[in-house]
Nucleic acid binder design. Structure first.
Lengths: 341, 341
DNA sequence: ATGAAAGCGCTAACAC
DNA sequence: GTGTTAGCGCTTTCAT
């Protein structure tokens, strides 16, 4: 194994200088820097991560904390995060919190204590439903780890936490306006999980757009949901069985929208001629159903990348505080929405 | 921060004894062991990962090497792997190899050198298409890292590598037999990517079943593919435009099967009454299309868990060699296959 | 601007 | 069965 001393010998300098070059510290002449870099390359030097972090208390590792790893949302964020990590020379480590742990405050505390102290990540990325879970929010500050939350819109920044999101309310309003512009007046709304900020935000956008258009809200076609396919299926069946069914359904995410489409298939209702369906997120499934789903694209890959970039910037000695970012969304009109008949 | 000395002091023993307890080494009296454990709990001791790995050359980290992170296949394996890691006290780290890197031997070598030397994982999990990529297979042995490949059927074990899979050929034969039993004789087959072992294996099962049933193979309805939705869509459109279209399509994975179903929708062909469609993998999409897809369930979560368990067992001092495993599959008959008319 | 020395927290090697 | 000591490879501190 090639050690720092070997590089130092090869370059004819002291270890400390090599260390300075490795860490991009100032106070090294450019010529020296070059010589050291050449020696590193020549010897194929790879610094020992454990030695570095033992001494410096930095791990060059970001931890992505997930709840349901199999969600395409999380998966895409992860993809972006991983790309950014590789570019910046950081490791991406995964950790998962199960439902029971999430419910139980003391369990969660113990879990964090163990996982975070052991891994000592330089930063933490939280995705929904972790991102604005009340118990998580309670426990986090005591850990003293820079954290980016993905998703929530209304959590204030602190020195140690910030958020990366889109403007859910605005996006939802635009989608609702799209449906209104097609002539729909009886538009159902499927809520998501209530412990996720997005549910309320998206509902607000829907409510605002209706109110702007002077359309009264009908509570009987605003249904609870869980963000998953089955919940959309059940709500779809319920709505279509009504005496006066809605002409459009806006689901708070694509999985539920796909469920509504499935319900329509089952009941022989044609989408979009008899029922328009809109989703949110632009998950993979939105392009794989028949018809394909009109939705809001969240730049999830970019969100993942932005999260890592913020954390790494804050971790690097410069000690700039974390900054929240709001990224742009896009209304994607596909085949599941059409003018009302 | 609580250190090992603090625990030792509290328990009234030497550091080495604490270390022995931490690592479950023998030669410690049960009473001492208990005392030490109590002290650890009481002080909230969390061992320093970096110090341990600096000294012991073990990182308690498994690396999952992925190519296309957004595939549901990989995602589910990852889910199982993460569960197993948490149970066994290991960290799961992610690394990604892009397409260009995978094509270029020297790039790949440099990538591995850098990634693996830096992270020093105790084990490596490869998923398709990494798992039996020729260049990867060439480069791996020189790295001296215990590796589990997920997917390939025909790679011999070595001391350092083993595989965890299902019997693709057998599974594919059973699916083909299912279609034959429904009266289909003109069964198309959609191949996957040719650099993946599964493509050939699954084709062989199809070929065997046809041959067992005395049905001649028609090369004009055996089409190449890439395992993705678009490729299934294109093949589906091509098959349905034939003068004598097949009565059934067996796609080498679910994404392609979903594409075929989409093609049928577009062309107004009813599935399954006019065309039966079968997939492979039991991806999430297989239950979200209309109709739902008859497929082969691979126990991907269990596969991910088994991979980690093997690696951890081999990493733990016992130094037992890696062992390959073949897990059971299951034929899931859903709504996309029906008797031929 | 550069270097020498101390020591991060742990385990390997060896003593008892 | 248990303890002592050295040192893993690096960065920090302090000196020059």
């Amino acid at each position: 194994m090639v050690r720092m001393v070997d590089v130092a010998k090869q370059a004819g300098v002291s270890v400390k200088t090599v260390s300075r070059v490795l860490n991009n510290e100032p106070h090294v002449q450019e010529a020296m820097r070059e010589k050291v870099r050449a020696a590193m390359d020549q010897l194929g030097y790879v610094p020992s991560a454990s030695a570095r972090s033992l001494r410096s208390h930095r791990s060059y590792t970001i931890m992505l904390l997930i709840h349901d790893i199999r969600s395409p949302f999380t998966n895409t964020v992860q993809f972006g995060a991983l790309q950014a990590c590789q570019e910046l020379g950081y490791h991406l480590q995964l950790a998962m919190v199960g439902s029971e742990t999430l419910e139980d405050r003391s369990k969660l505390e113990r879990y964090f204590e163990k996982t975070l102290r052991a891994g000592k990540p330089d930063g933490l990325v939280l995705v929904p439903p972790m991102a604005n879970h009340p118990v998580v929010a309670d426990v986090m500050p005591s850990l003293g780890i820079a954290t980016i939350r993905i998703g929530p819109n209304d959590v204030p920044d602190t020195d140690e936490t910030a958020t990366v999101t889109i403007d859910d309310t605005l996006a939802s309003r635009e989608m609702t306006k799209h449906l209104l512009s097609l002539g729909h007046r009886r538009i159902a709304f499927l809520r998501g999980k209530e412990d996720q900020d997005a549910t309320q935000r998206r509902f607000e956008g829907y409510a605002q757009a209706l109110s702007d258009a002077g359309v009264a809200r009908d509570p009987s076609i605003i249904l609870p949901g869980t963000f998953n396919f089955e919940s959309g299926l059940a709500s779809g069946e319920k709505l279509l069985a009504m005496k006066e069914p809605p002409t459009a359904v806006f689901a708070a995410n694509d999985d539920m929208a796909a469920g509504v489409i499935m319900a329509a298939h089952r009941l022989g209702v044609d989408v979009p001629s008899q029922l328009s369906v809109a989703g949110f997120d632009d998950s993979e499934i939105a392009e794989r159903t028949w018809p394909t789903i009109t939705t809001i694209r969240q730049p999830l890959e970019e969100i993942g990348m932005a999260a890592i970039e913020s954390l790494v910037a804050a971790a690097g000695g410069s000690a700039q505080p974390l900054r929240s970012k709001t990224l742009p969304f896009e209304l994607l009109i596909r085949n599941s929405t059409a003018p009302v008949k």
